[in-house]
Design a binder for these strands. Structure first.
Ligand SMILES: [Mn+2]
Ligand SMILES: [Mn+2]
Ligand SMILES: [Zn+2]
Ligand SMILES: [Zn+2]
Lengths: 156, 156
DNA sequence: GTTATATTGATAATGGTTATCATTAACATA
DNA sequence: TATGTTAATGATAACCATTATCAATATAAC
């Protein structure tokens, strides 16, 4: 089962069961996301969709992204820029589960998978212990590293 | 050296060297922060300062917080609520270095220090490895767990 | 084709944060 | 203590991502 198939089966679950409709604007947003590995903003997605689908409105992009997040198909990120960024979870050209290094200076976002298994093991254990101790059902973790990237160090 | 002394020495560094001034509004903001352990927003800080200092403007609170963050006295947090939250780093009644559990439902923020040494050791090692591999100078990490708190589980 | 309703997109509103700028206050110097 | 320099303040307007609204449209079931 390829990633695209996984996405489609997830989508079909929702369309079939909950009476949602697979419309042209939604297909267009999804298509753009599967062509991008660079954590685009709503506006960036809107502009790209707009090229092939000039009638689409910004609101539809917002709403479609909300749905895709709700359905577990897309991750929404907040890197404290004052605007959200999005990423397809099971990306066809993707690297799978990963975290990010974010450059404070140029806002570049580096995906990393190094030591991700070790990291995941540690986090899972930690979550289990914290969850028990604080009677808190953990549904999501955020691990991010901020700093200065290679080229920004050089140019200063 | 108590925490308050630590803060004051940090402040004095900046005031002495860089020509900054220790004004009444700044003292008021700092005082409110040292009386609060609950990650207040700008508005919450403003309202509390306003009680003892009715002439203060919102802008001064924003600017003072920016400075305190720049000087390494205060942490600025973004829990994706659309507004920032602040916390004194070396809080007089504080628990020291800690991370957070955030309830999606009621927005409650739980400080935890459990396993924090283990966590810190793991993160430090990870940072060193990632830093080398990706030629990225890490200055800050974010580790947060989101989920549903005890009382929100019960009330649903 | 008709119907019920999910979806769309133009537009206005919201709300936290920033920018501006004239006024005020703090500190150094005499 | 008075004076001059400049940092700090606060009222106000602007900014900008996101949300709310609602009439028009598209979709899928019958
Ligand atoms: Mn990524
Ligand atoms: Mn805290
Ligand atoms: Zn950079
Ligand atoms: Zn809760």
């Amino acid at each position: 089962m390829t990633n695209i198939e996984k996405i489609n089966s997830k989508l079909n679950e929702n369309f079939a069961e909950k009476g949602f409709r697979l419309t042209a604007p939604r297909k267009a947003v999804l298509s753009i996301l599967s062509q991008n590995m660079n954590h685009p903003t709503v506006e960036e997605i809107y502009l790209q969709v707009h090229e092939n689908y000039p009638s689409i409105g910004m609101m539809t992009v917002y709403r479609t992204l909300d749905l895709l997040v709700e359905w577990g198909v897309v991750h929404k990120f907040d890197f404290s820029e004052g605007k959200a960024r999005y990423e397809l979870i099971d990306h066809p050209d993707g690297i799978g589960h990963h975290h990010h290094l974010i450059c404070h200076n140029c806002k570049k976002i580096i995906n990393y998978t190094d030591f991700i298994d070790e990291e995941f093991k540690f986090i899972t254990k930690l979550e289990k212990q914290l969850s028990k101790k604080h009677k808190f059902q953990i549904t999501k973790h955020i691990i991010e590293f901020y700093g200065v990237c290679d080229s920004c160090v050089i140019n200063n």
